[in-house]
Nucleic acid binder design. Structure first.
Lengths: 197, 197, 197, 197
DNA sequence: ACGTAAGCGAGACGGTACGTCGCGTCTTACC
DNA sequence: GGTAAGACGCGACGTACCGTCTCGCTTACGT
């Protein structure tokens, strides 16, 4: 049941990959809630019993799949933001949107009205961390832990996630760059200029 | 199965009220998803079969309950915002938070990680409408339907909802006024000053 | 889950009867062990889930069915043996064999090599009681509870059951009367003549 | 999968012995039916897969184990009965009971209410052969194959097995000699005296 | 004594059946 | 007509064993 990726039995890795992909494609088609384990197993072309050898239930599979997607996001964003340039933030935004776009239908479903609150909460928490770090990086003179700061952090993270969801909802896809630019503008407006404060 | 409130059989109104309250209290205790119809019926002290005489399923009951809560919100907010004063916006914010606070545990659950995406989407849509009207009221010089405007609207509405959820998550309740003030400040920062533009 | 026969819901009685008959016919065809619950339900044309509303598992159903069959046996045999005639014993034997013959295929299976030990033990115990009563009726001068008596009782009951099983195993059915007569002869040989002792 | 004992690989013999003993001890503890292959393997301290290298399933293992036990019985009994003395029969009875006693808990389980019909049938068949030979040895004037003879044979064999099971059921073990004597008496009563007929 | 085929441990996998749970529908009888 | 009581069909759940199948390691046997 553990999730090491490296040194495992080939069959195990094959099976888990198949399950992961089955889940993703099913979510794209009909959302998460209405999926039943038999469907996942069918699509992955493994036996239902085998599913339970690897995951406790469909929520467990979702959890682990989520972790993997998130870890594809985290590292590069962190790297980008190490450069203290204004450009870095824009790059990070672009990277975020592009990454989301890679699994667009998946994220659209998970963030939509028949989506999954836990998933959104997970992403939200992640975004909050990023924004918090950015605050610190810009040495913004808000005492951490302040009421003011907490509210601002959550406001930005939630707004950010909201716009991402909005972007995914559009019938015809809007260019990443345009959305990133507008988000960047919003962030600059809302994040107090360190020199000015 | 219809939802008129006024002229119905007394027994019917009693039954529906009991079901509504049962649902609310159960959501506060364990969230919506894990609730089963039998529990609602038990707590409402009615027969399970009777439940189905009134509602298609638990989602139907939630839907109708949701509508009722929302309609308690809408009217006053609309009224408040008719006054073209800066103060009006703050009042509206205060009213929103107070209203949410009346059913704090309910909203906390529905907006939390084991919450319900449809519910959140519903609220989000409502907030977006309010913010859009406010934009129009302030005659902000953004061409409606623009990319820019759509993004800003969603950003603000989502940020707003995010902060509300954050507020509900706090162990010890923060004063409505403080949160409203900070939100007001954020809104003033982010909504372009009509005179300046 | 209780087994009252009288005052129950009509549907319940219909369902249980169907299950009982399904079980009996299935046992005749393939023995008890290899039967699965789904088969019983299929043949009784009820849903598998409903089966579990009435019986804990297939063993429970067997148990209760067994009780019913046995109670069809007991009463008349007891009555017959109340007459202190030699003829009475023969009559009882005939009745026993005839009763078994009514469900011949069922008993054949349950007493055969793919049969069920618990069932055989059940019958054996019943026969032992009958024989013990007969001993008492004939005022046989064996101190009850003696080693001698216990062994004799068991020997007769087991021999009796063995012959019944043997009779059922025959391809072409032997006349009840012949078998009963021979058994009667054996019993007279083995049961010490009260006058002689 | 074959069962030669002599010339096999040491490891194979070790493994099979371990499995046989594991089976026997498990049967003593909980009867045969409820045993699962994993348990046998665990107790024998071999891998479950290895079990299937040697036996088709647990019934196969039982079968072979049974054969071994039976062959320990047969030979001496046959020998004893060659002597045409009355004493020989008693000796054979004693030997039978003693042999059964060596694996008392095993036989107790296999012949008890949670026992195995196939096993009992097996023993019964064996006993029937013995009794049949004894009939022949005593030149009893019953035409073989008669209804009368068949019934008597089965009656005696079944009675015999029944008493053996009864003996095993007793909490405190009764002396072999007493039971053998009583059985002997029964046999003499029931088997028609050749001289007299 | 040693190389090699066999035995074996470890464990993934496809199956089948289990007993349970929750759903939504229905019927009967009561008020 | 609104309810209570509860049987029923249905479908999914998570679990338990089954028998089969690699894959390497280890060990007894034959030369």
């Amino acid at each position: 049941m553990s999730s090491q990726t490296g040194e495992m039995d080939l069959r195990v890795r094959r099976t888990r990959l198949a399950l992961r992909n089955a889940l993703l494609s099913l979510i794209e088609e009909k959302g998460f809630d209405s999926i039943i384990v038999q469907e996942i197993a069918d699509r992955a072309m493994i036996n239902r019993g085998t599913f339970y050898k690897h995951y406790r239930d469909k929520y467990d599979l979702l959890e682990q799949t989520m972790q993997e997607l998130l870890s594809e996001l985290s590292a590069p964003v962190a790297t980008l933001l190490q450069v203290p340039e204004d450009q870095a933030v824009l790059d990070a935004l672009v990277h975020w949107l592009e990454q989301v776009a890679r699994y667009a239908s998946f994220y659209r479903m998970m963030l939509g009205r028949s989506g999954n609150a836990a998933f959104a909460a997970h992403l939200l928490r992640y975004l909050e961390t990023i924004v918090a770090e950015e605050y610190r990086r810009q040495r913004i003179k808000q005492r951490p832990g302040t009421l003011e700061e907490s509210i601002n952090l959550r406001f930005i993270a939630a707004g950010f996630l909201g716009v991402t969801a909005w972007w995914l909802e559009q019938k015809q896809p809007l260019p990443v760059r345009d959305v990133a630019t507008q988000l960047h503008a919003l962030l600059k407006t809302i994040m107090p200029d360190p020199k000015a404060s």
